[in-house]
Write a protein that binds this DNA or RNA. Structure first.
Length: 303
DNA sequence: AAACCATTCAACCGCAAAACA
DNA sequence: TTGTTTTGCGGTTGAATGGTT
């Protein structure tokens, strides 16, 4: 029996999302939380397939997403993790919680790949991702598990020692660690609003004809003092959005909690416990440090 | 100014895994 | 246990944009 398509091909809109669609989607998710994507198009009236809705949310509208230039530290992390995990962008993205897997993948394909091949061309060193794949005789699943555990420890190690101040507030940590989850998420909806505001701005730049229809909304989204709109809305769409926005912190926290159910299970783990885990592990496996030195060293050389 | 080329990135597609009945 | 549905992931595409000739 063939698998049915995720959506009817007829009557499903494709291509770039409009700000209106974004607003509809965000306000719906704010109300119901992410998940049950199948129901989203039906319940919102969006002429998009469920997949498209999920993708739009996870890659663009989801709160806490950082866009724009990658920092040098993020670059190093990506190169390092890519060498360890291969093209497992979702796994890599879990260590850079503010970045989406799509973003990382794009950045890798457009920037880092070239950068690395250039550098490899210079010094003739082969990169290890494919080597490690071919030389390792273990099953893929086991290998992945091992690298995941290893990398988690490593990232944590970095977070705790090498780059402590930055790590606690930003990129080095897997998303499953508590402080960060909280710190990011407290302003989550604001950042989602920022995403939309940015989108609207771009949209207005590109299509001045349509500015009349959205100008009031966009300016209100952009209100830096509140981060939220307080202007009266005229359309149904904006009304829905504004209404839900008035309740931002509560419902957004709800969304975030939904998203990070798993994370929260470990969120109460004291940092000292994790440190102990690392130290114990390091003591038990004296050579482990070498592993890190090698990989970090290799990637560090690149810069 | 126009044509061409290169780059970027949002979005799509298809597959596989997970979840569910 | 099995079949079906939903979700997640990675690879790829193509429109938009910027740079060069």
């Amino acid at each position: 029996m063939g698998r049915p398509p995720c959506c009817d091909k007829v009557g499903v809109k494709k291509g770039p999302w409009t700000p209106e669609e974004d607003i509809i989607l965000v306000s719906y998710i704010q109300e119901h939380g992410p998940g049950n994507w199948r129901a989203v198009p039906t319940n919102t009236g969006l002429l998009r397939c469920s997949k498209s809705c999920r993708l739009r949310w996870t890659n663009y509208l989801r709160p806490g997403i950082k866009r724009g230039n990658f920092t040098e530290h993020e670059e190093k992390m990506i190169i390092h993790l890519q060498a360890l995990l291969g093209n497992r962008w979702a796994a890599i993205a879990s260590y850079l919680p503010q970045r989406t897997d799509n973003d990382i993948k794009n950045y890798w394909n457009t920037h880092l790949k070239k950068k690395l091949s250039k550098l490899q061309g210079q010094d003739g060193k082969g990169q290890n991702s494919s080597d490690s794949k071919s030389t390792n005789s273990k099953g893929q699943w086991e290998r992945r598990l091992q690298t995941d555990i290893h990398t988690a420890k490593q990232a944590l190690c970095e977070a705790l020692s090498i780059d402590k101040p930055a790590a606690i507030s930003s990129d080095t940590k897997p998303s499953s660690f508590p402080q960060q989850t909280c710190s990011i998420q407290t302003s989550t909806y604001a950042s989602s609003t920022e995403n939309i505001a940015r989108l609207l701005q771009n949209w207005m730049k590109k299509s001045p004809n349509s500015s009349e229809t959205v100008s009031s909304e966009s300016t209100s989204f952009n209100n830096p003092s509140t981060g939220l709109s307080s202007s009266p809305s005229e359309g149904a769409i904006s009304t829905a959005f504004m209404t839900s926005n008035s309740d931002v912190s509560q419902s957004e926290i709800g969304i975030v909690q939904d998203e990070s159910k798993l994370n929260l299970e470990s969120t109460n783990m004291p940092l000292s416990l994790l440190e102990k885990w690392l130290l114990d592990d390091a003591a038990a496996q004296g050579q482990e440090g070498d592993f890190m030195d090698i990989t970090l060293g290799e990637t560090a050389d690149l810069f």
